[in-house]
Amino acid sequence: MSSLPFTFGISEFTTMPWSFDQDVARYAGLGVDSIEVVEAKLDDDRFADQMRSIADAGLTISGIQPRIRTFFGSRMMPDPKGVEERTTCLRRSIERLAAFAPGVPFITNTGAHPQGDMAEAMEVVAEKLGELGRIAADHGVTIALEPLNPTSANIESAIWTIDQALDVIAASGSDDVGLCLDYWNIWQNDDVEAAIARAGDRIFTVQASDWRTPRSFADRIVPGDGVIPLAALIEATRATGYDRPWVVEIFSNEVTDSLYDDDLETVVRRCREGMADAWERHDLNG
Rank of each mutant, 00 (worst) to 15 (best):
Q65P: 02
W160T: 13
E193R: 15
A55E: 08
A158L: 08
Y27F: 15
L90E: 01
A278E: 05
E95G: 09
R46C: 13
R86A: 11
L97T: 02
S157M: 05
A99T: 10
R96C: 07
A99S: 09
W184P: 03
D175K: 13
G241K: 09
E95V: 02
S216M: 11
L132D: 04
V38S: 10
L166A: 02
A121N: 03
I162K: 00
E254V: 03
V255C: 01
Q65C: 15
C271T: 08
G103Y: 06
P223V: 04
R52M: 15
A28D: 00
D182I: 03
D117R: 07
A40I: 11
A137F: 08
G58F: 08
D163W: 01
E131H: 13
G200F: 07
Q50G: 10
Y260L: 10
E156M: 02
I143Q: 03
I203A: 05
P17F: 04
T7Y: 04
I196C: 00
C89D: 12
A165L: 01
D191R: 14
E254R: 08
V37L: 15
Y27W: 11
V255M: 02
S209L: 14
T88E: 15
D210H: 09
A153N: 13
I94M: 02
A232T: 15
A55V: 04
I203K: 02
A197I: 11
A25L: 10
V268W: 10
G73R: 13
S258Q: 05
A121C: 14
E273A: 14
C271D: 00
L145W: 01
